[in-house]
């Protein structure tokens, strides 16, 4: 499990440029699924389970993209100006390192500031890739990079960039591996472009028109010193989302998850997230609407190069997901 996670998180694939991670995932799942396809936006979709006409069509979604940067200008001295892809915050950039798709590494710094008490804006920052001039610089305008940070395991707590949402990807892969049989037709969607507005899940959901949708993503926790107030903590079980700022989970789906977890004695937490949303919103709002919910992996330091999750939560999320999809589903 740890090595799978390590492989996934160390792959550079910012939103819109998911090819590398998609190929990695494809090699992992090709033999496990009944069918694997890639749609027009690049979503990787694996199907498994019953295909009787009565089978419920369940869409699981974990996004495989990550936040990153994109080069906007290379100056004469060879410094790379950039803008962001997804929700990068300024205070995580200073002194941070990035890696472009071709492997080029760089460090982020900023111009001298008039006011040293405030953070530099992105337009005041640049990437130094060690080039002496524009000609010498291997980066071209439009090249994309992600944060460059190795995977570490501190016991059961694992830390890396892109844990959001490669940990969800890992959960889906493991769930698919362990799913022997299902009366449902289960679509494992590894979605693209989540970080820039749930775009992959939006089109995937329209294409699949499922009966039920479940996103697997990370959520914030409230268990750090004087952090924000949120009753979710690492190691207390996967979080069943009740709401976030983009959606209200379908109450029937929430009840289904809660009852299933209770029956199987799988620990869980109930999540009320006040910032952010997931692919579940996109699934819920497609076509004539889809009952949708989300299983979240509690994660500290989201959208920094050191996102931390607890492997016990990951293990329990896989178990819960397996319980949910391997039985016949009747939403209340």
């Amino acid at each position: 499990m740890k090595s799978l996670i390590q492989e996934l998180v160390e792959t550079i694939s910012p939103s819109g440029y998911e090819a590398k991670v998609r190929e990695l995932i494809r090699t992992k799942i090709e033999t496990l699924a009944d069918e694997v396809q890639v749609d027009a936006l690049g979503n990787l979709i694996a199907v498994k389970g019953g295909n009787e006409s009565s089978a419920k069509r369940i869409m699981l979604a974990a996004h495989m993209d990550e936040i990153g940067i994109i080069a906007t200008h290379i100056d004469e001295a060879g410094f790379v100006r950039f803008t962001t892809i997804g929700g990068v915050s300024r205070h995580t950039c200073i002194g941070g390192r990035v890696r472009f798709l071709d492997g080029t590494q760089g460090v982020i710094y900023y111009e001298k500031l008039e006011n040293t008490s405030s953070l530099p804006t992105f337009s005041q920052m640049y990437v130094d890739v060690g080039a002496a001039s524009r000609k010498d610089c291997p980066v071209r305008v439009g090249d994309v990079a992600a944060f460059d940070r190795d995977f570490s395991a501190y016991g059961d707590r694992v830390v890396s960039k892109a844990m959001d949402d490669r940990i969800g990807v890992a959960v889906l892969i493991e769930t698919l591996r362990k799913l022997k049989k299902s009366p449902n037709q289960v679509y494992f969607v590894f979605s693209v472009q989540e970080e820039v507005g749930l775009r992959g899940a939006t089109t995937a959901a329209f294409g699949l028109d499922p009966d039920i949708g479940i996103a697997v993503d990370v959520t914030r926790s409230g268990d750090t010193p004087k952090g924000h107030k949120m009753d979710v903590s690492l190691g207390s079980g996967p979080a069943i989302k009740v709401r976030d700022s983009g959606m209200l989970s379908d109450p029937k789906v929430v009840d289904w998850m809660v009852n299933t977890a209770d029956d199987a004695k799988i620990p869980y937490q109930l999540e009320v997230l006040e910032g952010g949303t997931t692919d579940a919103r996109a699934i819920q709002l497609t076509r004539a609407g889809v009952p949708a919910g989300c299983i979240s992996i509690p994660c500290r330091y989201i959208h920094t190069p050191s996102e931390m999750v607890d492997l016990n939560d990951v293990k329990n999320a896989i178990e819960l997901l397996l319980e949910l999809i391997s039985q016949e589903v009747e939403l209340g």
Binding site: G246, M247, L248, R281, Q284, L285, T286, R287, A288, G289
Partner: peptide, 16 residues
Amino acid sequence: SQEEVTMGGARTSAFH
């Protein structure tokens, strides 16, 4: 349903 949050009810009912 859900006008105050996502307008999801109107959107999906009109599609249907």
